[in-house]
Write a protein that binds this DNA or RNA. Structure first.
Lengths: 196, 196
DNA sequence: AATTTTATTGTACACGTGTATAGTATCTTT
DNA sequence: AAAGATACTATACACGTGTACAATAAAATT
């Protein structure tokens, strides 16, 4: 059996309505009722497709995240550089975020649920995991990779948080440089700070 | 002029009601109406004190965060160790989180707004800042301290996220060890991973 | 103790939420 | 093209939200 045309039509009009509303008001102020009025959809119908407004927004976030994954998984980036040097895969993250700036401004908004942040976290963390496994890196056997990758992935997100707070005004090139410099800081510094 | 007794009474009964409700249901399912019924407070009165249920919860979070800050600021921990070694200040974070486990389980819940996470982030980040300044560490002048500390602070929170996801079952002692091992990993490894 | 100040209550209103159900319209299948 | 399946609509209900305002109660001030 094929996908019902009615379903496609209503879902698309709901999604479109969200995009339109997002241009004039923040996500957390958009109600299901308003969305349905604009989409010319009965409110009861809405609930047979989405749980709430976040359910609709999540669709777009998933599209963006999968775009991020796709870019990262291009073979060129995975094989073309020697592992002795900092490879540029991660660098792509800043370009990606800048490209979808409007969405990331929503995701990092303090009124928005952690759910989207978690999605980001899991995505970046998976990259870390794969990178370690592909290069057959063996870490100190005492270190649990789950904790190591969580540490590393969230560190990157820390840069994004700061970037967001500065309204993404720092150029992506400088973000790349900052990341590389932080990564190449000597371990002696890390021991000195006691914290980092 | 002194603080009106009526105000104190109503605020305390609202806060108490929240604690009671939190024992049986998640924060995001607690309505202002329910809170007011239990607190025996008129709903209109509620809104002259708090904006919403989160406003009430935030009070507790602020108490907890200030407790965290206080513990960190005890002079003993700031002077008693040589900076050449990893100092144990940050180690306190795991004990602290474990102590207030119930609250952190709420804060890290995916349905809860980023606001509380940001509060945590800012707190830890301030520690990083102070630590760098107190020790008169000069980083590479090209590195912006704001990005460095955001990176470092959020990395720690990454460990907390993973810990939370495992329902805080990893013993605090092991969390301490994991952190120390991650921090003392050689920079050569970091260059190899390309990501971390 | 009397007066003044103000926090709280009770009530109302327009709106949003989530769910349910019967009737209608639209799609798919044969 | 007709039959069958099902998505959509219209409507209703109980509940929650945020705001407003006059009446009341309980504080602080004199």
């Amino acid at each position: 059996m094929k996908q019902d045309l009615r379903v496609i039509k209503t879902q698309e009009s709901i999604r479109q309505a969200l995009l339109i509303l997002l241009k004039t008001k923040p996500l957390d102020s958009i109600s299901v009722a308003e969305l349905c009025r604009l989409a010319k959809i009965n409110r009861g119908t809405f609930y047979s497709h989405y749980k709430d407004v976040h359910g609709v927004f999540k669709h777009y976030v998933e599209v963006i995240v999968s775009d991020f994954k796709k870019a990262y998984e291009q073979p060129y980036y995975r094989t073309g550089f020697r592992i002795q040097h900092i490879r540029p895969e991660m660098i792509k993250i800043f370009d990606h975020v800048k490209r979808y700036k409007k969405f990331y401004q929503i995701i990092f908004d303090e009124k928005i649920p952690l759910m989207y942040y978690n999605l980001l976290f899991d995505t970046v963390r998976t990259f870390m995991m794969e990178s370690i496994q592909e290069n057959h890196l063996k870490t100190d056997s005492e270190i649990q990779i789950e904790y190591l990758t969580s540490y590393q992935a969230n560190a990157i997100l820390g840069l994004l948080i700061e970037w967001y707070r500065r309204d993404f005004e720092t150029p992506t090139e400088e973000m790349n440089e900052q990341l590389i410099m932080i990564l190449s800081m000597s371990s002696s510094f890390r021991n000195q700070t006691s914290i980092s």
